[in-house]
Design a protein around this nucleic acid. Structure first.
Lengths: 210, 210, 210, 210
DNA sequence: ACCTACGGGACGTCCCGTTTAT
DNA sequence: ATAAACGGGACGTCCCGTAGGT
């Protein structure tokens, strides 16, 4: 909407301590606001309130609102991803890994208020936000590839029926979970999440090699 | 400072066909913009461009941007719904009805640019838009109830296994399709839709009474 | 300090009613703030508080803070001048006119808080404020010329000793009164004003033609 | 947010002549800037220019801008006072002392650029500068008491008419001279000073005991 | 139905006074 | 004593949604 404008780069490489801590604080506190209100829906004034800093204090650490939003998305997505993956390494095989991932998604409390940052960002229909759109795209690709990886390993281990296609499994799991989040949000109820969780568990069972 | 909702009521029902036609034109052309940019992301200026009218011309027909957005959502949802239902009445039984509905969703060209207005509106994380949020909620409820109706009829007709729960079917279908839309949008590809379509078709098959 | 920058001219000629009234309100309420805090010492935020408007509301009517300050000074000086001149026309001769003017200055309540806008503006040592400096200069010249006029008329009427020099009388009256204001402000007491009032009255008596 | 007055006390008294000399240099060079631009109108950057030091170099000697301004005012007022008093001790009686003081004020070149620091500081309408305001108040009181002292001595010596009131003389002299400075500044001319000088000389004559 | 005025408020830049690390 | 980092906050532009006047 507004021509992007070359901001003078804020200190790219940081070594000190106070500023770095402040920057981190800004990111964390902003992430929650962005996730609840969207990029365009979040004003600098809200960010000032959330961080307790003035405009100058924020703009010292980030060249633009968009840059801050990008950092906030990274932070949010990392948190969400860690929540998804939590305990995954203890699962012995691919199917239990996927089951566990769905379980994490459905049962764990959301790591930051406002729901899934991937869904929120993907749907934040602002034209110019190519940066944010790309980040969401990359996050989805990463998530997808994690699942593809697990399924591929499972295929190699003959856990799955040989006709199982890893990309399709990823699509079905991700779409199911994200769609459930959307329905849950609109209906203000967690039960759609549980329903989808059960459905996907059952579905994964059907993929086992006979 | 500024009293809210103090708009004098614009002529709700007009008899003159000229005015009514203009109003309808505004709704249709605005719906596309709202669906692409979201409520907050759409400015009156864009609406002026889309309709070819001046601000005053639009405000003659709608008391506020929000009122127009509500009308636009109604229009959009009606169009989408008709697309979903198209040809449904020719289906002989519940399962084919549901299959056909999924098919419509996956294969038909989207009735208006910007994707599913329900998903878009649900995710348009703006605080104050209670009106719009309610409309999205109602639309989801209506969609859900349509599916529940079909499944219930199917149960009565012993098409389905008796343990099938209509509400769950609705959740699974809707979440799957909407999630697929979101993935498709982010990946700029229709293939996630096809994948989910195939998945849901197969899933519906498993519900058949043995 | 800050390069002046060509603001696009706000509506130079006004015809309407609402905006004009708002503009006047802004001027009046700002005048008090400027007179108390000085030009540089007054922030737009204070002006927003004082007027109850937002930044955009103020900048619609004035192209810059400086422009607003100029209008506020005009308003303030007019008010002060009217206070000085009040009842002057009923005085029969030059000496009583001058005596009355001093009396007004010393005894009347100050028309707007913060003291004499001429003194305040003259001492507001900001470099770039040529506009304001000029206005103060012009105000002083006007005041001086009013006194010169009265004395000249008195000379023509043989009220004064013939060696009286109008310009000097003006200087003595103005400097005495303004100096008294400064002392009064610093000592937070009106008594310096009274003292100077009495001194100037006595002084004027000594000028009478024998 | 920012705790005020948390400056760690800078070394108040230094023994090293090097540091003391630097401190004195800063005070002298800053005094001129403060006297020309006012407290708020003077930036640390200007002070850096004037002193040839970096910010840190200044802050090594003064805990805050305000502290430096206070020292600068003291320096300035001492200089001005010395100029006023110069040669006063050689005057044989009270009237000639006062006449000489006025003469010094009117004819001597100003000891530092920017005019009278008392007037400037008194009119520097900044709210929070209580420190500076108090200093100006004290300077005025000192000046006033000097004059009162002289007049009182003169009364005791029967130089003056017995109805002369020392406090009033002080007010009349100070207000007249300071008012003249203000007019002179605005008109960029020294002639108002001369006019007031002549006026006050004549006035003092009228106070002589008959 | 147009056009313009109106007041709101977001955004980002600049620079200020101060603190910290050298 | 320097130099850079820090957080504060003022300023002014732009554009938004809305209200009137024509």
């Amino acid at each position: 909407m507004r021509p992007i404008g070359r901001n003078k780069m804020p200190p790219a490489a940081k070594k000190s301590s106070r500023g770095t801590a402040t920057r981190q604080r800004i990111v964390e506190q902003s992430a929650s606001v962005f996730n609840r209100h969207g990029y365009a829906g979040t004003s600098m004034a809200e960010l000032m309130d959330a961080t307790g800093l003035e405009k100058g204090g924020i703009y010292r650490h980030f060249g633009s609102k968009q840059e801050l939003a990008a950092a906030a998305f990274d932070f949010a997505w990392t948190a969400v991803r860690e929540s998804h993956q939590q305990g995954l390494e203890t699962c012995p095989d691919a199917i239990s890994k996927l089951t566990w991932m769905v379980r994490n998604f459905v049962e764990l409390p959301q790591p930051l208020p406002g729901g899934c940052p991937l869904l929120n960002t993907a749907m934040d229909n602002d034209d110019g936000n190519l940066l944010l759109r790309d980040k969401a795209h990359a996050a989805l690709a990463q998530w997808r590839s994690t699942i593809v990886e697990i399924v591929s390993q499972g295929l190699r281990d003959r856990e799955f029926r040989p006709d199982v296609r890893p990309e399709d499994i990823a699509t079905i799991l991700i779409a199911g979970m994200e769609g459930a989040v959307m329905v849950a949000r609109l209906e203000k109820s967690r039960s759609p999440l549980k329903t989808i969780g059960a459905h996907l568990h059952a579905y994964l069972e059907t993929l086992k090699a006979s």
